[in-house]
């Protein structure tokens, strides 16, 4: 019971309170770049959830079974980036084979997950917050869910903005950035929550 409770807390924390995009400001590139269409936003979200969960799992194992025993903590970033890059490459191959339509709609943003700070961020945060193995896997998963949530919300808003009467100078990117700011303010309401 206590386990379920702590997982629930973790979920609320990483989806809402310290949302990756809107309160940590990580992974802004796909947040603005892939939020034009709802379909590709959902696809991107799924890819990020998948990569984040896997990356959290593997980087935790690397940290505690390879780096810490050998006193190589300072190689953390390099080792993690190596892992994430290989992982994303792998995911890309799988998606290209299994779901060509999704692969097409994700376009250039799939390889960009490689250098996405959100994925590296979640791996490093897992270590600095001293999560357990299960904790880091769950943190990775829920952070991905939080990312997907805001990405899908943003895509929904932007699809409606296409129809809205926006002054010419504000059309496209400017209004998207303003909306992003408003969403960050709204999510700011969760800040300081303690469960």
């Amino acid at each position: 019971m206590q386990f379920i409770g702590s997982m629930f807390t973790l979920a609320i924390m990483s989806i809402f309170v310290s949302n990756f995009v809107l309160s940590r400001f990580l992974g802004l590139c796909p947040y603005i770049g892939v939020s034009k269409k709802l379909d590709s936003a959902v696809g991107m979200g799924m890819a990020v959830i998948f990569v984040m969960t896997l990356a959290s799992t593997i980087t935790w194992l690397i940290q505690y079974y390879l780096l810490v025993p050998n006193n190589l903590g300072y190689l953390q970033t390099i080792a993690f980036i190596l892992t994430i890059a290989a992982l994303v490459q792998f995911v890309e191959m799988v998606i290209q084979k299994m779901a060509p339509a999704l692969y097409k709609s994700l376009g250039v943003f799939l390889p960009l997950i490689t250098t996405n700070c959100a994925v590296l961020g979640v791996s490093i945060l897992n270590i600095t917050e001293e999560y357990t193995f299960i904790g880091s896997v769950m943190n990775g998963f829920f952070s991905g869910v939080g990312f997907t949530l805001v990405l899908v919300l943003m895509a929904g808003i932007r699809e409606r903005l296409e129809q809205a009467e926006v002054p010419v100078t504000m059309k496209g990117m400017p209004i998207a950035l303003i909306v992003a700011g408003c969403m960050a303010l709204a999510f700011g309401g969760f800040a300081g929550f303690k469960i």
Binding site: I62, L66, L67, N70, L72, L75, I78, A79, L82, T83, A86, Q89, F90, M93
Partner: peptide, 17 residues
Amino acid sequence: IAIAIIGGLGLIFGLVL
């Protein structure tokens, strides 16, 4: 050791890919 571990990681990932 550092070289071996990072190099080994790279090698394993390379083979998997």
